[in-house]
Design a protein around this nucleic acid. Structure first.
Lengths: 161, 161
DNA sequence: ATTGAAACTTGATCGTT
DNA sequence: AACGATCAAGTTTCAAT
Protein backbone atom coordinates (compact mmCIF):
# COMPACT_ATOMS: atom_id res chain seq x y z
CA UNK A 1 0.00 0.00 0.00
CA UNK A 2 1.93 2.96 -1.24
CA UNK A 3 0.78 6.24 -2.67
CA UNK A 4 0.22 4.77 -6.12
CA UNK A 5 -2.08 2.06 -4.75
CA UNK A 6 -4.03 4.59 -2.78
CA UNK A 7 -4.45 6.87 -5.78
CA UNK A 8 -5.73 3.93 -7.80
CA UNK A 9 -8.15 2.71 -5.11
CA UNK A 10 -9.37 6.24 -4.50
CA UNK A 11 -9.99 6.81 -8.18
CA UNK A 12 -12.00 3.59 -8.30
CA UNK A 13 -14.07 4.67 -5.31
CA UNK A 14 -14.65 8.19 -6.54
CA UNK A 15 -15.34 7.59 -10.21
CA UNK A 16 -17.21 4.38 -9.56
CA UNK A 17 -15.34 2.28 -12.07
CA UNK A 18 -12.50 -0.20 -12.03
CA UNK A 19 -11.66 0.16 -15.70
CA UNK A 20 -7.86 0.50 -16.15
CA UNK A 21 -8.44 3.05 -18.88
CA UNK A 22 -10.66 5.26 -16.73
CA UNK A 23 -8.20 5.01 -13.88
CA UNK A 24 -5.43 6.10 -16.21
CA UNK A 25 -7.51 9.12 -17.20
CA UNK A 26 -8.14 10.00 -13.57
CA UNK A 27 -4.67 9.42 -12.16
CA UNK A 28 -2.21 9.65 -15.05
CA UNK A 29 -0.88 6.20 -14.19
CA UNK A 30 -0.57 4.13 -17.41
CA UNK A 31 -3.26 1.50 -17.77
CA UNK A 32 -0.76 -1.35 -17.96
CA UNK A 33 0.67 -0.26 -14.62
CA UNK A 34 -2.81 0.07 -13.21
CA UNK A 35 -3.53 -3.44 -14.40
CA UNK A 36 -0.36 -4.74 -12.75
CA UNK A 37 -1.21 -3.00 -9.47
CA UNK A 38 -4.78 -4.24 -9.46
CA UNK A 39 -3.53 -7.79 -9.82
CA UNK A 40 -1.21 -7.31 -6.85
CA UNK A 41 -4.03 -5.83 -4.77
CA UNK A 42 -6.22 -8.73 -5.74
CA UNK A 43 -3.60 -11.33 -4.87
CA UNK A 44 -2.84 -9.75 -1.52
CA UNK A 45 -6.55 -9.74 -0.72
CA UNK A 46 -7.03 -5.98 -0.48
CA UNK A 47 -9.48 -6.09 -3.35
CA UNK A 48 -11.92 -8.94 -3.07
CA UNK A 49 -14.50 -8.29 -5.72
CA UNK A 50 -15.98 -5.89 -8.16
CA UNK A 51 -19.57 -5.21 -7.30
CA UNK A 52 -22.34 -2.88 -8.18
CA UNK A 53 -23.28 -0.19 -5.72
CA UNK A 54 -27.03 -0.27 -5.18
CA UNK A 55 -29.75 2.19 -4.29
CA UNK A 56 -31.50 0.07 -1.67
CA UNK A 57 -34.68 2.17 -1.66
CA UNK A 58 -35.12 1.61 -5.38
CA UNK A 59 -34.42 -2.09 -5.08
CA UNK A 60 -37.13 -2.28 -2.46
CA UNK A 61 -35.04 -3.05 0.61
CA UNK A 62 -36.15 0.06 2.42
CA UNK A 63 -36.28 -0.83 6.12
CA UNK A 64 -33.15 -0.60 8.26
CA UNK A 65 -33.15 -2.10 11.74
CA UNK A 66 -30.38 -1.34 14.22
CA UNK A 67 -30.23 -3.73 17.14
CA UNK A 68 -28.22 -3.92 20.31
CA UNK A 69 -27.92 -7.48 21.48
CA UNK A 70 -26.63 -8.81 24.80
CA UNK A 71 -25.42 -12.37 25.14
CA UNK A 72 -24.30 -14.67 27.90
CA UNK A 73 -20.63 -14.50 28.56
CA UNK A 74 -18.85 -17.68 27.60
CA UNK A 75 -15.45 -18.54 26.27
CA UNK A 76 -15.26 -17.51 22.64
CA UNK A 77 -18.90 -16.48 22.56
CA UNK A 78 -18.25 -13.44 20.42
CA UNK A 79 -17.19 -15.87 17.73
CA UNK A 80 -20.04 -18.33 17.93
CA UNK A 81 -22.85 -15.91 18.71
CA UNK A 82 -21.42 -13.45 16.18
CA UNK A 83 -21.47 -16.07 13.47
CA UNK A 84 -25.02 -17.02 14.30
CA UNK A 85 -26.13 -13.42 14.09
CA UNK A 86 -24.22 -12.94 10.84
CA UNK A 87 -26.02 -15.86 9.24
CA UNK A 88 -29.52 -14.51 9.90
CA UNK A 89 -31.08 -13.60 6.57
CA UNK A 90 -31.01 -9.85 6.02
CA UNK A 91 -28.21 -9.11 8.45
CA UNK A 92 -25.67 -6.77 6.91
CA UNK A 93 -23.26 -5.85 9.69
CA UNK A 94 -22.35 -7.44 13.03
CA UNK A 95 -20.02 -5.66 15.44
CA UNK A 96 -18.80 -6.97 18.76
CA UNK A 97 -18.20 -3.92 20.90
CA UNK A 98 -16.01 -2.82 23.74
CA UNK A 99 -17.24 -1.63 27.13
CA UNK A 100 -20.66 -3.14 27.43
CA UNK A 101 -19.98 -6.56 26.00
CA UNK A 102 -22.63 -6.75 23.33
CA UNK A 103 -23.27 -6.77 19.64
CA UNK A 104 -24.50 -4.08 17.31
CA UNK A 105 -26.33 -5.61 14.38
CA UNK A 106 -27.59 -3.76 11.31
CA UNK A 107 -30.05 -5.41 8.97
CA UNK A 108 -31.82 -4.25 5.82
CA UNK A 109 -35.19 -5.80 5.05
CA UNK A 110 -38.18 -5.39 2.79
CA UNK A 111 -41.22 -5.56 5.03
CA UNK A 112 -42.56 -5.32 8.59
CA UNK A 113 -43.06 -9.06 8.55
CA UNK A 114 -39.36 -9.54 7.87
CA UNK A 115 -38.56 -7.30 10.84
CA UNK A 116 -40.56 -9.54 13.11
CA UNK A 117 -38.98 -12.74 11.88
CA UNK A 118 -35.58 -11.07 12.13
CA UNK A 119 -36.03 -10.27 15.83
CA UNK A 120 -37.44 -13.73 16.41
CA UNK A 121 -34.35 -15.18 14.77
CA UNK A 122 -32.09 -13.13 17.04
CA UNK A 123 -33.93 -14.21 20.15
CA UNK A 124 -33.95 -17.85 19.09
CA UNK A 125 -30.18 -17.95 19.46
CA UNK A 126 -29.71 -19.74 22.77
CA UNK A 127 -26.88 -17.63 24.20
CA UNK A 128 -28.78 -14.39 23.65
CA UNK A 129 -30.22 -12.71 26.72
CA UNK A 130 -31.78 -9.51 25.52
CA UNK A 131 -32.27 -7.46 22.36
CA UNK A 132 -33.20 -3.84 21.79
CA UNK A 133 -34.04 -2.67 18.29
CA UNK A 134 -34.83 0.62 16.65
CA UNK A 135 -35.73 1.56 13.11
CA UNK A 136 -33.67 3.99 11.11
CA UNK A 137 -36.45 6.30 10.04
CA UNK A 138 -34.04 8.08 7.78
CA UNK A 139 -30.73 6.91 6.37
CA UNK A 140 -28.78 10.11 5.95
CA UNK A 141 -25.70 8.34 4.67
CA UNK A 142 -24.82 4.76 3.85
CA UNK A 143 -21.66 4.81 1.83
CA UNK A 144 -20.82 1.43 0.41
CA UNK A 145 -17.17 2.21 -0.25
CA UNK A 146 -15.40 3.51 2.87
CA UNK A 147 -12.66 5.11 0.81
CA UNK A 148 -15.23 7.66 -0.24
CA UNK A 149 -15.40 8.83 3.35
CA UNK A 150 -11.94 10.31 3.05
CA UNK A 151 -10.03 12.88 1.12
CA UNK A 152 -7.28 11.31 -1.05
CA UNK A 153 -4.58 13.36 0.63
CA UNK A 154 -5.72 12.23 4.08
CA UNK A 155 -5.57 8.61 2.96
CA UNK A 156 -2.07 9.02 1.59
CA UNK A 157 -0.90 10.69 4.77
CA UNK A 158 -2.47 8.06 7.01
CA UNK A 159 -1.82 4.92 5.02
CA UNK A 160 1.15 5.18 2.70
CA UNK A 161 4.13 3.03 3.63
CA UNK B 1 -37.59 -4.93 -10.83
CA UNK B 2 -38.78 -8.29 -12.00
CA UNK B 3 -37.35 -11.73 -11.52
CA UNK B 4 -34.83 -11.31 -14.33
CA UNK B 5 -33.45 -8.12 -12.81
CA UNK B 6 -33.14 -9.77 -9.45
CA UNK B 7 -31.36 -12.79 -10.89
CA UNK B 8 -28.90 -10.47 -12.63
CA UNK B 9 -28.26 -8.31 -9.54
CA UNK B 10 -27.92 -11.39 -7.38
CA UNK B 11 -25.42 -12.96 -9.74
CA UNK B 12 -23.39 -9.76 -9.66
CA UNK B 13 -23.43 -9.72 -5.88
CA UNK B 14 -22.59 -13.38 -5.49
CA UNK B 15 -19.95 -13.84 -8.15
CA UNK B 16 -18.44 -10.43 -7.57
CA UNK B 17 -18.41 -9.35 -11.16
CA UNK B 18 -20.56 -7.24 -13.41
CA UNK B 19 -19.30 -8.69 -16.65
CA UNK B 20 -22.25 -9.48 -18.96
CA UNK B 21 -20.51 -12.63 -20.07
CA UNK B 22 -20.03 -13.94 -16.52
CA UNK B 23 -23.64 -13.08 -15.73
CA UNK B 24 -24.74 -15.02 -18.78
CA UNK B 25 -22.76 -18.02 -17.53
CA UNK B 26 -24.33 -17.74 -14.08
CA UNK B 27 -27.93 -17.07 -15.08
CA UNK B 28 -28.38 -18.32 -18.63
CA UNK B 29 -29.65 -14.89 -19.68
CA UNK B 30 -27.91 -13.86 -22.95
CA UNK B 31 -25.26 -11.21 -22.46
CA UNK B 32 -26.95 -8.81 -24.85
CA UNK B 33 -30.08 -9.00 -22.72
CA UNK B 34 -28.00 -8.60 -19.58
CA UNK B 35 -26.42 -5.54 -21.13
CA UNK B 36 -29.83 -4.11 -21.96
CA UNK B 37 -31.11 -4.76 -18.43
CA UNK B 38 -28.04 -3.26 -16.81
CA UNK B 39 -28.56 -0.08 -18.81
CA UNK B 40 -32.17 0.11 -17.63
CA UNK B 41 -31.11 -0.44 -14.03
CA UNK B 42 -28.50 2.24 -14.40
CA UNK B 43 -30.91 4.74 -15.92
CA UNK B 44 -33.53 4.13 -13.27
CA UNK B 45 -30.88 4.68 -10.60
CA UNK B 46 -30.97 1.21 -9.06
CA UNK B 47 -27.34 0.71 -9.98
CA UNK B 48 -25.23 3.71 -9.22
CA UNK B 49 -21.68 2.55 -9.70
CA UNK B 50 -19.32 -0.31 -10.11
CA UNK B 51 -16.90 -0.41 -7.26
CA UNK B 52 -14.30 -2.63 -5.74
CA UNK B 53 -15.11 -4.35 -2.52
CA UNK B 54 -12.29 -3.77 -0.05
CA UNK B 55 -10.74 -5.59 2.87
CA UNK B 56 -10.55 -2.64 5.27
CA UNK B 57 -8.09 -4.33 7.63
CA UNK B 58 -5.63 -4.87 4.81
CA UNK B 59 -6.05 -1.32 3.56
CA UNK B 60 -5.20 -0.11 7.05
CA UNK B 61 -8.57 1.32 8.06
CA UNK B 62 -8.92 -1.00 11.02
CA UNK B 63 -10.77 0.93 13.71
CA UNK B 64 -14.57 1.04 13.72
CA UNK B 65 -16.35 3.48 16.02
CA UNK B 66 -20.08 3.22 16.67
CA UNK B 67 -21.60 6.34 18.18
CA UNK B 68 -24.99 7.23 19.53
CA UNK B 69 -25.58 10.95 19.24
CA UNK B 70 -28.34 13.07 20.76
CA UNK B 71 -29.22 16.44 19.31
CA UNK B 72 -31.47 19.35 20.23
CA UNK B 73 -34.89 19.03 18.75
CA UNK B 74 -35.56 21.64 16.11
CA UNK B 75 -37.59 21.75 12.93
CA UNK B 76 -35.85 19.68 10.29
CA UNK B 77 -32.86 19.01 12.51
CA UNK B 78 -32.52 15.44 11.37
CA UNK B 79 -31.71 16.90 7.97
CA UNK B 80 -29.20 19.55 8.98
CA UNK B 81 -27.52 17.71 11.82
CA UNK B 82 -27.54 14.52 9.78
CA UNK B 83 -25.78 16.23 6.91
CA UNK B 84 -23.18 17.70 9.24
CA UNK B 85 -22.48 14.31 10.72
CA UNK B 86 -22.32 12.74 7.27
CA UNK B 87 -19.68 15.23 6.17
CA UNK B 88 -17.26 14.45 8.99
CA UNK B 89 -14.23 12.76 7.48
CA UNK B 90 -14.28 9.01 8.12
CA UNK B 91 -18.03 8.76 8.69
CA UNK B 92 -19.49 5.87 6.77
CA UNK B 93 -23.12 5.58 7.89
CA UNK B 94 -25.57 7.96 9.54
CA UNK B 95 -28.99 6.75 10.67
CA UNK B 96 -31.69 8.85 12.23
CA UNK B 97 -33.63 6.52 14.47
CA UNK B 98 -37.12 6.10 15.81
CA UNK B 99 -38.03 6.09 19.49
CA UNK B 100 -35.24 7.94 21.18
CA UNK B 101 -34.70 10.71 18.67
CA UNK B 102 -31.03 10.33 18.00
CA UNK B 103 -28.47 9.33 15.43
CA UNK B 104 -26.43 6.19 15.07
CA UNK B 105 -23.15 6.96 13.33
CA UNK B 106 -20.59 4.43 12.15
CA UNK B 107 -17.11 5.56 11.20
CA UNK B 108 -14.02 3.68 10.04
CA UNK B 109 -10.67 5.25 10.82
CA UNK B 110 -6.97 4.47 10.82
CA UNK B 111 -5.67 5.57 14.21
CA UNK B 112 -6.51 6.49 17.78
CA UNK B 113 -5.77 10.11 16.94
CA UNK B 114 -8.42 10.02 14.24
CA UNK B 115 -10.91 8.67 16.78
CA UNK B 116 -10.30 11.64 19.01
CA UNK B 117 -10.64 14.18 16.24
CA UNK B 118 -13.76 12.37 15.06
CA UNK B 119 -15.49 12.70 18.43
CA UNK B 120 -14.34 16.31 18.67
CA UNK B 121 -15.87 16.93 15.26
CA UNK B 122 -19.17 15.42 16.39
CA UNK B 123 -19.26 17.52 19.53
CA UNK B 124 -18.32 20.68 17.66
CA UNK B 125 -21.66 20.54 15.84
CA UNK B 126 -23.70 23.16 17.66
CA UNK B 127 -27.03 21.31 17.86
CA UNK B 128 -25.43 18.25 19.40
CA UNK B 129 -26.04 17.65 23.07
CA UNK B 130 -24.37 14.40 23.93
CA UNK B 131 -22.43 11.58 22.32
CA UNK B 132 -21.65 8.05 23.43
CA UNK B 133 -19.16 5.99 21.49
CA UNK B 134 -17.90 2.45 21.57
CA UNK B 135 -15.29 0.60 19.57
CA UNK B 136 -16.11 -2.48 17.57
CA UNK B 137 -13.40 -4.73 18.92
CA UNK B 138 -14.35 -7.29 16.34
CA UNK B 139 -16.21 -6.87 13.08
CA UNK B 140 -17.90 -10.23 12.61
CA UNK B 141 -19.59 -9.17 9.40
CA UNK B 142 -19.55 -6.08 7.23
CA UNK B 143 -21.07 -7.01 3.93
CA UNK B 144 -20.66 -4.30 1.35
CA UNK B 145 -23.40 -5.57 -0.94
CA UNK B 146 -26.70 -6.05 0.91
CA UNK B 147 -27.99 -8.44 -1.75
CA UNK B 148 -25.50 -10.94 -0.39
CA UNK B 149 -27.44 -10.96 2.86
CA UNK B 150 -30.31 -12.78 1.16
CA UNK B 151 -31.08 -15.95 -0.64
CA UNK B 152 -32.02 -15.36 -4.32
CA UNK B 153 -35.37 -17.04 -3.90
CA UNK B 154 -36.22 -14.84 -0.91
CA UNK B 155 -35.38 -11.75 -2.94
CA UNK B 156 -37.57 -12.85 -5.82
CA UNK B 157 -40.45 -13.62 -3.49
CA UNK B 158 -40.14 -10.33 -1.65
CA UNK B 159 -39.29 -7.98 -4.48
CA UNK B 160 -40.51 -9.17 -7.84
CA UNK B 161 -43.31 -7.11 -9.39
C1' DA C 1 8.22 -2.54 -10.84
C1' DT C 2 7.10 0.28 -14.91
C1' DT C 3 5.55 1.16 -19.40
C1' DG C 4 4.48 1.50 -24.78
C1' DA C 5 2.80 -1.14 -28.12
C1' DA C 6 0.75 -5.47 -29.82
C1' DA C 7 -2.63 -9.14 -29.39
C1' DC C 8 -6.78 -10.62 -28.25
C1' DT C 9 -10.94 -10.98 -25.38
C1' DT C 10 -15.30 -9.17 -24.54
C1' DG C 11 -18.58 -5.51 -23.91
C1' DA C 12 -21.54 -2.69 -26.77
C1' DT C 13 -24.14 -2.12 -30.98
C1' DC C 14 -27.32 -3.32 -34.58
C1' DG C 15 -31.00 -5.49 -36.91
C1' DT C 16 -34.53 -8.91 -36.59
C1' DT C 17 -38.25 -11.09 -34.17
C1' DA D 1 -38.27 -6.38 -24.75
C1' DA D 2 -35.26 -10.26 -26.20
C1' DC D 3 -31.38 -11.97 -28.47
C1' DG D 4 -27.79 -13.80 -32.26
C1' DA D 5 -24.32 -11.96 -35.03
C1' DT D 6 -21.01 -8.34 -35.71
C1' DC D 7 -17.61 -4.80 -34.61
C1' DA D 8 -15.31 -1.40 -31.90
C1' DA D 9 -13.30 -0.87 -27.65
C1' DG D 10 -10.81 -1.90 -23.78
C1' DT D 11 -8.28 -5.36 -21.21
C1' DT D 12 -4.48 -8.21 -20.97
C1' DT D 13 -0.09 -9.69 -22.43
C1' DC D 14 4.63 -9.09 -23.76
C1' DA D 15 9.25 -7.45 -24.14
C1' DA D 16 12.38 -3.85 -22.90
C1' DT D 17 13.99 -0.85 -19.30
Amino acid sequence: MDEKDIRILSAIARDGTASPEKIEDATGIPKSTVHYRLNQLRESGVITNDLYDLDLEKVGISITLISEIWAEFEEGYHETVGEKLASVEGVNQVYFTMGDTDFIVIAHVTSREMVESLVEDYEAISEIERTSSKFAIKTVKDEQNPLNDFDVETLIEELAD
